[in-house]
Simulated assay, not measured.
Amino acid sequence: MNERDFADLAVGHALHALSEADERAYQEALAGNPHWDSHVRDAADAVAAISAAVEPVEPPPSVRASLFARISDLPQEPAASVPAAAEGEDFAAAGPAPVVAKSDAVPAGSARARSWGARRWFALAASFAAVLVLGFGAVTVGQLFSPPAAVVALQEIEKAPDAQSASTTLPDGTVATAHWSPSTGRSVLVTDGMPALESDKTYELWFVRDQTPIAAGTFTPDADGNATAVLDGEMHAGDVIAVTIEPAGGSPDGTPSTAPVLAVATA
């Protein structure tokens, strides 16, 4: 089993939707490849986040019909043939039928060898079904099981050999941590406890380089004040990463309109 196949199974496991055989394959693959556990966490976190954040609604009947129509188009394996019973045969008197063990050996190109492609469709259908149950239209399947770009960037930085970070804590308890890596050319700000803003305001990121602020994008924390935001542009050694409060959409003239509410020194 390759890593992509395992990621598909991790989705089904998070949804409690694997067959007994697939669950066994999933557990065996995880035991043999513990470094794949990031797929397990990503799938579980996504399902938990959606179930906690989205109010259930009734999906349109047409969506359910469309989903099951697509599933019905999948190729079906023929059921094993069963000999017809002789007329008047007494099944109780005949006793239990003998059980014949099946061989695990599967020739190349057989139904089991082809099943991984069907399993990917199963993961898609199961994910779509979860979206229908948890809140139709709230997210796409890709959003549900693909990490946000900022999280991917943070993971790349943390894996880099030259990864660095610096933090600052404000008097109100807000914690902001800057992560960066010269080799990846990326930088990310992670916040915890940022105060909520009015709907016509946003937080804007800045590189402050030689006393000159350079706009680096906007971000909106979640209800708990948490955010993971990628800074636009390349960070230079010694830059200060600052955050200001600006009109929705960001500063209209490309310069800060307020004093920074936080600043993280990187040197």
Rank of each mutant, 00 (worst) to 15 (best):
Y203V: 01
M1N: 08
R64G: 11
V175A: 06
L18D: 12
G254P: 11
A223H: 06
A216F: 02
A176Q: 00
P148S: 00
T258M: 03
S62G: 04
P60C: 06
G135N: 06
R41G: 08
G233S: 05
S72W: 13
D172P: 02
P107Q: 14
L9P: 09
D104K: 12
T258I: 04
G193H: 02
V82T: 03
P56G: 13
A46P: 03
P83V: 01
T255N: 11
A65Q: 04
D8E: 12
K201C: 12
D45I: 07
W121A: 15
G12H: 02
D73V: 13
P75G: 13
V230C: 11
T220D: 10
S72M: 13
T220Q: 13
I245S: 01
A85L: 14
T169K: 14
T174R: 07
E28G: 05
K102S: 15
P147S: 05
E77C: 06
L74Y: 07
E58H: 10
L132C: 05
V63Y: 08
G238L: 03
S62N: 08
N2L: 01
A43P: 06
P260D: 03
K102M: 09
A53D: 12
E20N: 14
A259V: 08
P182C: 02
R112G: 11
A166D: 03
V133R: 06
D90R: 03
D192P: 00
R24P: 13
A79G: 04
P59A: 01
E89N: 14
A166C: 04
T174D: 03
V190C: 09
V152Y: 09
L205P: 00
A85Y: 10
H16Q: 15
S81G: 12
F145W: 03
F136A: 15
S165Q: 04
D224W: 08
A101D: 14
T202N: 00
P34D: 11
G249H: 00
T140Q: 08
W36K: 00
S127T: 09
D239I: 07
G137T: 01
G95Q: 11
R119W: 07
Q211A: 14
V243E: 00
P107L: 14
L154C: 05
T169S: 12
A52V: 08
V54D: 13
G137D: 03
R186K: 12
R209L: 00
A52I: 09
K159V: 10
A229N: 05
E156N: 11
H35G: 15
A46S: 07
G193I: 08
H236Q: 14
V175Y: 04
A123S: 03
A113D: 15
V230W: 13
A10N: 04
T244K: 07
E158Y: 07
V40N: 00
S38A: 12
Q211V: 10
R114K: 14
L231H: 09
A111Q: 11
A92V: 14
P247C: 06
